[in-house]
Simulated scan of single mutants.
Amino acid sequence: MSQVWPYIPARTVNITTLVEFDRLAAEALETQMARARNWRVHRVDLQTRDSLLGTLDLADCLFIDCVFSSQGRALVEATGGLCMSSGVQLPFDISERDLYTPYELYSGIKEVPYAQVPDAQIYTYSQSKPPLKFATDDTAMATTLHDHHIGQAMINAVYDGVFANTPMIGVMGGHAVQRGTQEFADAVQLGTTLTRKGYSIVTGGGPGAMEAANAGAWLADYEPQDIVAALDILAQAPDAIRHRTMWARAAVRVREQFPSKNHSLGVPTWFYGHEPPNLFATHIAKFFTNSIREAILLEQSNGGIIVLPGAAGTVQEIFQDACENYYATGARVTPIVLVGEKHWREELPVWPLLQALAVGRAMEDRIALVDTVDEAVAFIETMTPLRRRTRF
């Protein structure tokens, strides 16, 4: 089936049996180039298939945990094919999968410290590889394949799954916003209000303003006093960086005390792995490669983007989106609203530059600067969500 990665049609052929391999090889040999396109061959015994491996063009192919004859691997690599072992040392899956859930990344968190949960183990693994080797060894292929499958899973959720019928609002903001502060409560209110109005929340999936917006979506069906009680629990463990274990366990307590049927999306990255993913995003698309993560996060915000106060990472997201809007036709401009006049005019004077870029462009009437989250929601409600790109 054709897939979108990250935005354009592509075809990946997963082969898991020798019968499938033989059938597709015969089809490829009937073409002039004898080219096997985008094959992913998983755990197939190919010891008796040297003649086929030596005849096919395998430049687009990846062979994972396959068994070869003494010459088989060399035959694959001679035409540019890649052979790799997933290896028992890999703390993550490289096969097709769904999006992560919080309890998958935090498995065991009620009994063990954060350092022992899968999210931390994967981050440690990613940091243990020397950057200069990263592009050439098998671990680079493993992380690339992981990100591919996570990207596909996210596209499936957006086009066909839980997010298919609701416009998505990207909520950006600083990871340093701590539980127990007014800024955190405001972001929770934003997530709650948007969810009640029929939008889906997508954030960078980390702590701070991102967690607050996802938590707001989670708590959207509760009364104000319940939301206050939930925030009080969270405020007992405000520090996501220095006290990750207690921070995560407080979120687990809230989830258990206030169960929810609402969905929201988080798109974090192990590139910033010191910032743990929050547990209120019910669906998590966590990537190794931050550039892919940033692009795909903005792409899914078809209902608009609301930017809470933040620092360098938030500024990057503003202007990455502004660059796309600057060159876009009117039909493809994503509305963006900044919250916090003093912050975006004086502390980080992003707004004047954003205004200057917008003059005379299709984006000019789709940017705004406001002071409250209620004003931000009101602006977004005046905008028409973008039609999603054709999937196939």
Rank of each mutant, 00 (worst) to 15 (best):
M1E: 07
V4K: 01
P6D: 08
T12N: 07
L18T: 13
F21K: 04
R23F: 07
A26N: 11
A28S: 09
E30W: 03
A36H: 00
W39S: 00
R40A: 08
V41R: 02
H42N: 11
D50V: 14
V67Y: 05
F68N: 04
S69Q: 08
A74T: 11
A78T: 12
T79W: 02
Q89D: 15
I94R: 01
D98C: 11
S107D: 12
P113Q: 14
Y114E: 06
D119K: 03
S128R: 12
P130K: 12
K133P: 00
T144W: 04
D147M: 05
A153D: 02
I155K: 02
A164D: 02
A164W: 04
N165C: 03
P167D: 06
M172S: 00
M172N: 00
G174C: 01
G174I: 02
H175P: 07
A176S: 15
R179S: 13
Q182A: 11
E183L: 12
T192S: 08
Y199N: 04
V202N: 03
A209V: 13
A215N: 05
A215M: 15
A230L: 09
Q236V: 09
R244F: 02
M246K: 14
A248F: 06
F258C: 12
K261Q: 13
K261N: 08
K261I: 12
H263V: 04
T282G: 10
A285E: 05
R293V: 01
A295M: 06
L297S: 07
I305Q: 00
Y327L: 12
T329C: 11
P335Y: 05
I336E: 06
G340S: 06
E346G: 03
E347F: 12
A358K: 08
M363R: 03
E364I: 10
D365G: 02
D365V: 05
I380K: 02
I380H: 00
T382I: 06
